Amino acid sequence: MSFLGTLPKALSFVVALSAALPAAAHEFWISPVDYQVADGVPLKADLRVGQSFEGSAYPYVPANFTRFELIQGDAVRSVEGRAGDRPALNMAAPGDGLAVVVHVTRDYSLTYPKWETFVSFTEHKDIVWAQERHLERGLTKDRVRERYTRFAKSLIGVGTSAGADREMGLRTEIVALTNPYTDDLSNGFNVQVLYEGAPRADVQVELFDKAPGESKGVSTLHRTDDQGLVTLPVQTGHEYLVDSVVFNELDPETQDDHAWESLWASLTFRVPE
């Protein structure tokens, strides 16, 4: 019996819907209810899909992820729950310090409804080269197939919030080199973008900035240097989503008709007031 067949009808619909939505919407991110909590207070966070840092929250569904962890220093704990739980993360932190939430989705598939949609996506994510390459490979414009996976992280401060993010072994990830809750941010927020453990040089990084009281974020584009590093402008009291996308060729003959693979890295945090 399939996983969907074991769920209540309403929850089965949620699983199917959450699987389909990322094809139409763009970003996927972890959205803490509170970015800073007192020691001993449970950490709570939603999983969101949407555009402009605005999107619907989705429940804890084990079939939709391959990794969901809460990491604090060397302590790594799996995020546990029951299918359908909201928020998706609701658990106690191991203790005082900076907590990093990590979530990796399963692989999803999408078929672009028309060539113009593929063009728009590749232009937005600074991968325009893929348009010409698609045609060079003799592939049709009528049915562009893509496989995609999301690699999300979020920073939550517990108590003193002391500590640091680190490389978590994700296929692609954004590593915060600045602790937003304890460090001086007057010169910006530093991150490094990685792919398979190596720095991603000269690639686009999109920063969504959500001001207090706003429902949507304002997007600005930035680029990494030759070490995959970039300093992002931030303001006190604002919430941030950092996003970067890897785009790889796939052989449709061996990859179930998928011609492309996209790997999405995201990182969320908030700058205290």
Rank of each mutant, 00 (worst) to 15 (best):
P42C: 07
Y35N: 06
R77P: 06
G84E: 04
G73W: 04
G50A: 02
P62T: 13
R86I: 14
A57V: 02
Q72F: 02
P42L: 07
A75Y: 09
L70C: 10
E69N: 05
V79G: 00
S56H: 11
D46S: 07
G50Q: 00
Q51M: 11
A83F: 03
S78R: 15
S52K: 12
S78Q: 15
N64I: 09
D74S: 04
F68Y: 10
A83E: 08
P42M: 08
N64G: 09
Q36V: 11
G50D: 03
A63G: 11
K44W: 01
A45W: 00
Y60N: 10
V37T: 09
R77W: 15
Q51W: 12
V76N: 14
F68M: 12
V76W: 13
D85F: 04
A57P: 04
R86F: 12
R77N: 15
E80N: 14
Q36M: 06
R86S: 13
G55E: 08
V79C: 09
A45C: 11
G84H: 02
G50M: 02
Q36S: 07
V49W: 03
P42W: 10
F65C: 07
S56K: 13
A83N: 13
D39T: 13
D46K: 04
R82H: 15
I71G: 01
Y58W: 14
V76H: 15
E69Q: 14
K44P: 02
E80S: 15
R77E: 15
D39C: 10
G84C: 08
E69C: 07
L47A: 07
S56Q: 12
K44T: 10
Q72V: 02
R86K: 14
V61L: 11
V41W: 04
P59W: 01
Y58L: 11
S56E: 13
V76P: 14
P42N: 06
L70D: 04
I71S: 07
Y58P: 05
Y60H: 14
V79F: 01
V49Q: 04
V61Q: 05
L70P: 05
G81C: 10
Q36L: 07
Q51R: 11
F68P: 00
R77H: 15
A63C: 08
R86V: 13
G81F: 05
P59H: 03
V41K: 09
R86L: 15
D74F: 02
D46C: 05
G55S: 09
F65W: 10
D46E: 10
F68V: 06
N64H: 12
L43F: 03
A83W: 03
A83R: 01
I71D: 00
A83P: 12
A63I: 06
D85Y: 05
R67H: 11
G50F: 03
S52A: 15
G40Q: 03
Y60E: 09
G55K: 00
A38Q: 04
F65Y: 07
K44D: 01
G84Q: 05
P62Q: 10
G84W: 05
G40P: 11
P59S: 10
R67D: 11
Y60D: 11
R77Q: 15
R86C: 12
